[in-house]
Amino acid sequence: MIKTQILKKILPLLVAPVVFLIGFTACEKAVQPVPINYGQDECEYCRMKITDPRYGSELLLKTGKAYKFDSIECLAAYYLKNKNNPNIHSLWVPDFLTKKFIPAETAVYLHSKDLPSPMGLNISAFKSKEELEKVRQKYGGEVLNWEQVLQLVKKEWLEKEGQKTDHHHHHHHKDMNM
């Protein structure tokens, strides 16, 4: 009897922070990309510091939580591993020239061995084909869409990762001809 009385009095204290939190998140603004703190934030996939604004990417959850990546290939790899999460809201990559976020699905990508991206798959994003061509004139390389980027990352990274139990297989990244 006394115990339930005490409990009744304490319960609001316990619940208060939770209720507060729910109220707080409910008032949050619409889900949109969060600015990356270059030099401070860590890549969610490869754990490296994010330092290059030409490649810093983001995955947003419906809750507004943002996962940040140092390269487009890391975003793609993370997405491939987590795409069954029903909470995923959107994917964002930076436009190579303006460094502003654009949706990953609408961006066009340049895959050029002479334009190395932070994690070695050499993928850069552009908001339009015209912009991309400006850069491609100098560096060359092939043009990809988002689906093809995913395919590339799957092939170059994820499928090879599966082989790690194999002791002596040949290393999986093609070296440039010397």
Partner: peptide, 11 residues
């Protein structure tokens, strides 16, 4: 799965 930076700060 929520962006907790601010709520945890406020709490």
């Amino acid at each position: 799965q929520y962006p907790l930076e601010k709520p945890v700060l406020v709490l």
